[in-house]
Design a protein around this nucleic acid. Structure first.
Lengths: 251, 251
DNA sequence: CGACGCCTTGACCCGTGTCAAGAGGGGTGG
DNA sequence: CCACCCCTCTTGACACGGGTCAAGGCGTCG
């Protein structure tokens, strides 16, 4: 883990292309200047490095600048589960605010970089800029909604439905960041996908094979192409079909 | 659903016994007075009434005054899952902040009452009272942690482990509110427990029978008594054993 | 070039789902 | 106040999805 002060490499939030994810829109020049003081350093991570670990005292929350991270939550008996995969623009460490200690491990799946936001500074600035405060509440709230969707997936969907909705969810989030929604690189192993979805790695592998036979996807190693979006949406329990399928036919 | 204005029935947060759950501690008299203006009305619910429904625009968040609520999240294809059971002092509606619309249904499991907190008023007050702001962030954050624990339960534990940790979780939360941690009334049906835990109601019923045979619990209808706490902790994946089991033997 | 880690595939089995029948309690109407 | 009905819960039999164990292929990195 490698710290970079913003003196060496200036890092203005106001000009960051990821601002749309972290920050409120339509700030005054004055407010934008204040926000630029928030991130005084960034952290560079190599694949496998952890950004923070369960139990460490919380001093900062993080915004992902580039790369991919996983968060995992462990039981004292050793069992653990991946609770999320995180892309640029997403915030990490929020689950640590409640107890002032991080509640999970955050680990880089590839070389990554995160902006360090000292939390007390952030709260003080949020009191001065109502739209920043509200944006932060929205981020926390969306995190809750995301977790609820995940809960429904683990509790009510069959393995193939979970995997299909996982692929579509990644697709959406990559598209929002300007990447192709139909072809992308999986940064995580079969085992990590399985952990996230509450199934075994062998099942993930078998399902990828089955999806390929059915003409839903093409996959080679970790490079995946979603061939039949509608078919995947069908499998994913139509959870987004009313929003996304056949938009041209919408009334 | 029955609205009560605070003129008819004064309702001061500063003297509410549940304040320890909702509010920061150590407020000045001045701040306490401001907080007392937050809740201008309460809502009375009969069993089965909903406090809000998925898709409705969000104007307020809620604090439970008394009673028990469930929140459930639905897929467009009709499948749905209970994502939480909520006790007095807990806040509801937080998942709606992100999209300005509630993302779940909140339904009373028994006659209940909730304090209405107009969200824009709340944010404005939180900007004036740092400890209120921070407390709200802690509440949101703990909600996230709770969901992560639930995710781990659904993804990594077997049915009997899920049920055991569910019973212990209820026990803890009831104890924190001054009720008996070893004997309580289940406000939800077997089907609702199953939905929450991602298992079928028949499995819940069979497990209750098995737990009874093993001497872990006694159960008659919805009245349950936890007879062998250590045994339940053992089953629950030791997820809390290091904190709670055999405290007298702790180093 | 070799070794290790990751992935695929097969065989078998167990936990849980599904379907079905019946018991028990509580509420409602006569 | 009693009887009936309906809802909830229990229990059994059986089926199946996915877990577990095992063997082998493939790509990558040292």
């Amino acid at each position: 883990m490698n710290r970079i002060s913003s003196a060496e490499s200036p890092n203005k939030c106001s000009t960051c292309v990821l601002g749309q994810f972290c920050l409120p829109v339509g700030l005054s020049a004055d407010d934008a200047n204040k926000i630029d003081t928030l991130v005084t350093e960034r952290v560079r991570l190599k694949k496998g490095d952890s950004l923070y670990r369960q139990g460490e005292p919380l001093t900062a929350v993080y915004g992902i600048k580039f790369g991919t991270l996983k968060t995992e939550y462990a039981l004292p008996d050793g069992r653990e589960q991946i609770t999320g995969f995180h892309l640029p623009g997403e915030m990490l460490g929020l689950d640590g605010i409640g107890e002032n200690h991080y509640q999970s491990n955050a680990i880089a799946l590839e070389d990554s970089e995160a902006c360090v936001v000292r939390f007390s500074d952030f709260e003080s600035l949020a009191r001065q800029i109502p739209s920043l405060q509200h944006q932060f509440h929205r981020i926390l709230s969306r995190e809750l909604t995301q977790d609820q969707r995940h809960l429904l997936s683990l509790g009510s969907l069959r393995a193939e439905e979970r995997l299909a909705s996982f692929l579509l969810n990644l697709s959406d989030r990559l598209a929002a960041r300007g990447y192709s929604p139909i072809e992308y690189h999986l940064r995580m192993s079969r085992e990590e996908i399985g952990s996230y979805l509450g199934i075994q790695l062998e099942t993930v592998s078998r399902l990828f094979s089955r999806f390929t036979e059915s003409g839903l996807i093409q996959i080679k190693q970790r490079h995946i192409k979603l061939v039949d979006m509608d078919g995947l949406l069908e499998l994913a329990g139509k959870s987004r079909a009313i929003h996304c399928a056949n938009p041209s036919k919408a009334a």
